[in-house]
């Protein structure tokens, strides 16, 4: 299939899963009720459910799913490592530490935005630390050092967070665990707009980096010969992809697997050209997380399954299937990009 056909198909799929997300949930609604609610008619409770609960939640799934998947694809290119995913460079550890500190210090009692703000601050701190460590004296970023620094900084933050939790009371521990499992349940329109404002520019700028990322994938030296400012591209790509991840983490906690398997799935289907891969990863990630959230909301209703469980349960078999097919069809070398 041609890239444009894929793009059209996936864009259509985003619209479809969004509508499906409005239609399905713990409370049974008919399609007619959903459309009436969208036009502002019908029962007020149905309108609340569709417009204030399901719609912002689906929008958040699209934004965060797309963002995580896109930033995963960028990290895989940047680190030239197929295991790279959005959280690999310590962002989740930093964000979790921020969130846990906000909870333990009781900031969240009076300020409801304290938790996402602290999570974001923690993520940004981790990003700066990693970048600072990885930048050598002559301002070059060695991606191997970046990877190591990221993993180590992440481990430190995680340890610090465990320490804070071990001296916290039971309530803090409970809230922290709930937050760390990741959930879209608390999405409302104001958070959706905030995440949109924050992550859409980053996403678009990353897609604009597709050509230099293609060259980087061949090798830094070659890219340099071909006229790419390698250091600048690496730095910008790292910061933008991290910011994109941080926005998602602040709003919804740590949701795993999306950023790892969706870009690989797209790569296995359409090849490793980042001009195609990046936009398609965003769309596919959006579809995937929205679907996962529908499953999370409905399968054990009224209780919700943690969305990370669904992304793993659904994503891993799907990914293995793709992997198996691609190994059968061609050589496995594509996976390494």
């Amino acid at each position: 299939m041609k890239p444009f056909a894929w793009a059209g198909l996936l864009a259509l799929a985003v619209v479809l899963v969004f509508m499906l997300s409005l239609r399905l949930g713990s409370v049974d609604l008919t399609t007619a009720q959903v459309f009436a609610a969208l036009r502002g008619q019908g029962d007020v409770n149905v309108r609340q459910i569709v417009i204030e609960l399901r719609a912002p939640r689906a929008a958040m799934a699209i934004l965060v799913g797309g963002g995580l998947s896109l930033s995963g694809a960028v990290f895989q290119a940047l680190l030239r490592n197929p295991l790279a995913e959005p959280y690999i460079l310590g962002i989740s550890g930093g964000a979790a530490t921020g969130a846990v500190l906000a909870l333990a210090l009781g900031l969240t009692a009076s300020l409801t935005w304290a938790l996402p703000a602290a999570a974001l601050a923690g993520a940004l701190l981790a990003i700066l630390l990693v970048l600072g460590v990885a930048s050598s004296a002559d301002h070059r970023v060695d991606v191997r050092v970046l990877l190591l620094a990221g993993v180590v900084v992440g481990a430190f933050f995680t340890a610090f967070m465990s320490f804070v939790l071990s001296i916290s009371d039971a309530r803090t521990v409970r809230s922290a665990v709930l937050w760390m499992m990741g959930s879209l349940a608390s999405s409302d329109w104001s958070t959706v707009w905030m995440v949109t404002l924050y992550s859409l520019p980053a996403a678009i700028a990353l897609m604009a980096l597709a050509r230099p990322l293609n060259l980087l994938a061949i090798g830094e030296e070659t890219a340099g010969y071909l006229g790419t400012n390698v250091e600048r591209v690496k730095r910008i790509a790292y910061v933008l992809a991290s910011l994109l991840t941080a926005a998602g983490v602040a709003a919804t906690g740590v949701i795993g697997f999306v950023g790892l398997i969706v870009p690989h799935g797209v790569r296995l289907s359409v090849g490793a050209d980042y001009r195609v891969l990046l936009p398609l990863s965003f769309l596919a990630g959006a579809v995937f997380l929205t679907l996962a959230d529908i499953v999370a909301r409905t399968v054990l209703s009224p209780t919700e399954v943690p969305i990370g469980v669904v992304t793993a349960f659904v994503g891993v078999p799907l990914f293995l299937l793709l992997l198996r097919r691609s190994v059968g069809a061609r050589s496995g070398s594509e996976i390494e990009s």
């Binding site: 713990s26 009692a109 938790l115 309530r171 803090t172 809230s175 709930l178 608390s186 009224p302 919700e304």
Partner: peptide, 27 residues
């Protein structure tokens, strides 16, 4: 904690008794 909001809306409630404190800010 973190009850299903859809169902709460659909029940047309006059009052929800909830836990105070930090366990469940979003709710």
């Amino acid at each position: 904690l973190q009850p299903n909001l859809e169902i709460l809306v659909s029940l047309d409630l006059d009052l929800v008794i909830r836990f105070a404190g930090e366990s469940d800010l979003a709710t």
